[in-house]
Design a binder for these strands. Structure first.
Lengths: 129, 129
DNA sequence: GTACGATCTAGAGCCGACTCTAGGTCAAGT
DNA sequence: ACTTGACCTAGAGTCGGCTCTAGATCGTAC
């Protein structure tokens, strides 16, 4: 199990080196990142897995503050499963709300695409919007 | 057709009065907003419809710059349908990409919710993450 | 005619989430 | 020994998208 550097983690997670240091400062690592003798970060596979979870949550619009609260709960250990569940359900709601909005937007786009395709196809422009 | 004030538009679109003035400054009104004798904005029903389209696009993550480009095309009149179509297709891609990510996130959330429900249901905590 | 709330403009401020800089230290190759 | 590049910390800067402020004007109700 070779020591994993921050650069490798950046490659594997798609996060920038800067973002990784930022995330650590912000307290969203479930376990403190180890250091080698020279003071450099040494990541574990678990750290990477956690970071991947975080990237999925972030990409779905979970705010840093919520991720930090969740991280705090995980770091604090067993016994707070109810709170974790509540945070997850809260985000589930955010995600489904977003999906609804995206669906509404896709409907609009498809409608408008249809209009423009007709216009272009028939060479008879009708509608200005 | 009573003159519609900015406050009424705010109520009807869900945008703030500040945001409405900001949008206008940023050039994302398809038609210039009219003014009354005292210099106050007078919106039309068309303006409101356009703003509603904009809110749908914004809510689905279309950047202001893209909305502005689209607005410019619409304002410029017929003959640029191909470009409008291209912008819409570009955003369609953004939207479907987002949906994929949201779906991935929902899978993760549902998995984790399942884990925590089991933990809480059986009173036998197993997994710390 | 006066009070008061809605509106006006121009411009500053804010927030989230990074991103970058400065000024160093560490480690691997030659 | 020296070069080079990845890494370190602390803190400043950036960007998008609003949001708020100041100071003035408008317009309706009394």
């Amino acid at each position: 199990m070779a020591s994993i550097t921050i650069g490798e983690v950046a490659e594997r997670t798609g996060l920038s080196v800067h973002a990784l240091r930022f995330y650590e400062r912000e307290g969203i690592m479930a376990n403190p990142v180890a250091r080698n003798a020279g003071g450099r970060r040494v990541y574990s596979e678990d750290d990477i897995e956690w970071l991947i979870v975080c990237t999925v949550l972030r990409a779905s619009g979970m705010p840093m503050t919520a991720i930090r609260r969740y991280t705090d709960l995980v770091r604090h250990g067993e016994g707070n499963e109810k709170e974790r569940l509540a945070l997850l359900r809260e985000h589930e709601q955010r995600v489904t709300d977003q999906m609804d909005q995206l669906t509404r937007c896709l409907d609009l786009i498809h409608y408008k695409i249809g209009v423009y395709e007709d216009v272009l196809g028939t060479d008879s422009p009708i509608n200005g919007t």
